Computed example of a mutant assay.
Amino acid sequence: MAPIPTPPAEPQDQPDSYVGLPAEHAERQARERGWSTVRSLPPGAIITMEYRVGRLNFEVRDGLVIRAWKG
């Protein structure tokens, strides 16, 4: 049987630190800090809930991040 792959380490910054930032700035900062995928979503968007290592999600309203979470 093949070994189970070890997922890459996620950046150690806190998702809450992005709340209140303009979405473009937050996305650029997240990529610079090592997040492999950054997803911006409108409030109430229907999304899949699978956990993806290295993904940071932003809920964006009026151009500002109002919520951020890993996965």
Rank of each mutant, 00 (worst) to 15 (best):
M1S: 13
P3V: 15
P5L: 15
P5N: 10
P7Q: 08
P7L: 03
P8S: 07
A9Q: 12
A9G: 03
P11M: 05
P11D: 10
P11F: 05
Q12D: 14
P15Y: 03
V19Q: 03
G20S: 01
G20P: 06
G20H: 03
L21F: 12
R28D: 13
R28I: 05
Q29D: 14
A30N: 04
A30F: 02
R31V: 07
G34A: 02
S36A: 09
T37P: 03
T37A: 10
V38L: 08
V38N: 13
S40T: 11
S40M: 12
L41A: 13
P42E: 00
P42W: 05
G44Y: 02
G44T: 02
G44A: 03
A45Y: 09
I46T: 14
I47S: 10
T48D: 15
M49F: 14
V53E: 11
V53W: 09
L56P: 08
F58I: 02
F58V: 01
R61C: 09
D62A: 12
D62N: 14
D62K: 06
G63E: 00
G63A: 01
G63R: 03
G63K: 06
I66S: 15
A68Q: 02
A68N: 07
A68S: 10
W69P: 08
K70F: 12
K70E: 12
